[in-house]
């Protein structure tokens, strides 16, 4: 059972972690609690569904198309709504409320277009499994773990070993200073929104094949990712990575010992406890 616990922590943590890393990345340059990140992930799932099941495109085409759509969506949200608002002096609270409004609109559009029923991109019969000795998991879950590590590696490399990454971190450290030096903040923010969109698109597609999708899927996923990122300190990518895993571990242990209906309660109690005791989360170091 212990092995299963660890394995499941990895799988669930990976799902949360992609959102957590995306959240952290976006927050680092645009510091507000952006509710539409959940919408972008949900779009990943629904766009894939639209392209593959409804338009009949081959799988890889549909998946890549969906991720591209997410990147564009994320970009347009930032360019069309948040950046102009920020430039007009909107506080982070105002931006958060605005994003809540956008998320609400998004959810109702999905409901209107796709209907309320549960959809799953994958088929239960053709599930390819990966055998691990003590357990076998469906391919999509293994891919989620892989994607999690790959995204982490890629973003880490980007942030620490490239010039673009330097610019991103500069905006994070001090937006006003970066502006003074002449780096175009807005451009960086837009670039980050595209990156975030890609990561979220990947997350959405994977979830679409695993536990499926419903129009309300984005909100809960966002919260989990956000909690993961905040537990990890919301100060760096590594924090988001481990914070998400920690959250998944705590949830799973909770379910194992208590009952599953208390899962949400456990997640939020941990969240609030962490915030109360260590406002910086697990990883205190600033930077990146």
């Amino acid at each position: 059972m212990l092995l299963h616990l660890l394995l499941n922590t990895l799988i669930v943590g990976a799902g949360y972690g992609l959102m957590a890393m995306a959240f952290r990345l976006m927050y680092s340059v645009s510091p507000f609690f952006n509710m539409t990140l959940g919408a972008v992930a949900a779009l990943g799932a629904y766009a894939s569904y639209g392209l593959i099941s409804l338009c009949g495109l081959p799988m890889w085409f549909g998946v890549i198309g969906a991720i591209a759509i997410c990147a564009l969506f994320s970009y347009f949200l930032e360019a069309g709504i948040y950046t102009p608002m920020r430039n007009h002096g909107a506080s982070s609270m105002v931006l958060m409320v605005a994003s809540l409004g956008v998320y609400t609109i998004f959810e109702s559009v999905i409901l209107l277009v796709f209907g309320p029923q549960y959809q799953n991109l994958g088929s239960i019969h053709s599930a390819v499994t990966v055998h691990l000795g003590f357990a076998s998991i469906p391919l999509v879950q293994a891919l989620t773990i892989v994607a999690f590590f790959v995204c982490f590696g890629f973003l880490n490399y980007l942030l620490h070993h490239t010039f673009i990454g330097l610019k991103i971190r500069a905006v994070n450290d001090s937006a006003s200073l970066a502006n003074t030096i002449g780096m175009k903040n807005n451009q960086i923010i837009l670039l980050v929104s595209v990156l975030t969109g890609i990561v979220l698109g990947v997350d959405g597609v994977l979830i679409g094949y695993d536990t499926g999708m419903t129009p309300t899927m984005g909100f809960n996923l966002l919260f989990k990712g956000m909690i993961g990122a905040i537990i990890g300190g919301l100060a760096n990518l590594r924090g988001a990575f481990f914070g998400a895993l920690f959250l998944a571990l705590a949830e799973n242990i909770g379910v194992l010992i208590f009952a599953s209906e208390w899962r949400d309660l456990i997640a939020f109690v941990i969240f609030i406890t962490f915030l109360s005791l260590r406002p910086q989360g697990i990883f205190q170091k600033k930077g990146n």
Binding site: I81, M85, A90, V94, L95, A98, G101, I105
Partner: peptide, 9 residues
């Protein structure tokens, strides 16, 4: 949703 958004803007 639109109310929230438009009010904020």
């Amino acid at each position: 949703g639109a109310m929230l958004l438009l009010m904020m803007i």
